[in-house]
Structure formats: structure tokens, C-alpha cells
Simulated assay, not measured.
Amino acid sequence: MNNLEFFLDKSALVGNENQILSSEEFKNLLQKESFEYIDVPSFNQLKDIQAGEAGIKNALIEVDYAIAETGTVVIDSINENKRLATCLAEKLFVVMPISKLVASLNDVADFIEERTSDMGGYVAFITGASRTADIERVLTVGVHGPKEMAVYIVNDL
């Protein structure tokens, strides 16, 4: 199984919606969809808002890396609004250029060290929608992060 197949399998296991798109298909999607927060440098897209008490309905964020072995996306979250958007969005959409896909956590170790060496560094690891359960095993979705997550894998950046 190659890295992409492994990522898709692990990502789907936690309930993520995954779509493989060309750059053109993604650009068309950007024109059709309305996101409250956008941070997608590869397409020169930025729409910055500050999360209020109502939270954020949806956010679109480009990943810094994706880890195939766990289906996890890695996002440099030093920007407070970006950090809040990834935690408070009801639905989190992530853009993953296929070139950012690595096999394992070891492959992003240097990136993590570089980004967190200062006291103010934050790196988020997001595998899917937030899930938590209490002692009675009552599952609650979306308490510590998004209720839903979708991954747009752009294959020709």
C-alpha cells in the first residue's frame, strides 16, 4: 500500500470525507463554496476573521504536512486566529498538497523542532473530528475541535 492509500484508509477510519482533486477542480470548489476562514497559501487565498462567541461555521486551512501512517494532518498554528479556526470550526476543511504527504511522524520531526523551538510555537496534529467520552461512555463530538473534517487532496501542485 502506498502512502496515499494508507493516508486515505486511516483518515476514513475516523470519519473524514476525503476527496482527491486537481488544482483546477479545487479552484472551482473555492468559487462555489463559502468559508468563514481561509488560509491556503498555495492558492493565494486568505480570509482572516477572529472567532467570536458563536465560533466559526467552517474553516479552510492548508496543511504543512500529512502523516500517512495515522491519517493525521500537521498544521503550524502559531497564528492565533488560525489556531482558533482549527479548534472552533464546526466543520474543518483541510487542503493537502500531495507533495506534503510523508510516511511517518519521524518524517516531520525536524519541522516540529524548528516550529516549536521558541516558547511561542504551536503545531497542531489533527486526525479527525473531536471526540470525547465521559466515565459512562457517553460520546460527545466537537468539544475540543471540529465536529466534522474533510480533506481535499490536491494532486498536481
Rank of each mutant, 00 (worst) to 15 (best):
E24S: 13
G52R: 07
K82T: 15
A89T: 09
E90A: 10
T72N: 03
D64N: 15
E53G: 12
N79F: 07
K32M: 13
V63F: 09
E36A: 04
L60C: 08
I56Y: 00
I75H: 09
I49A: 05
G71L: 03
P41W: 09
N79C: 12
C87M: 15
R83I: 05
E36S: 09
F93K: 04
I61M: 11
Q50I: 13
V63N: 06
C87T: 14
E69A: 13
E33S: 10
I75S: 07
E24Q: 12
A85H: 02
I49F: 08
E24L: 14
K27Y: 07
I67S: 01
F93L: 07
V74A: 02
L29F: 10
A89K: 02
L29G: 01
K91L: 03
F35T: 02
N79D: 15
E53K: 13
A51V: 10
I38A: 00
L84H: 03
Q45M: 08
S77D: 07
I78N: 14
D48L: 14
N44D: 15
K57D: 10
V63H: 07
N79K: 12
S77A: 15
A59P: 02
I49L: 11
K47T: 07
A66Q: 01
I75K: 10
E90S: 14
S42N: 14
A54V: 06
L60R: 02
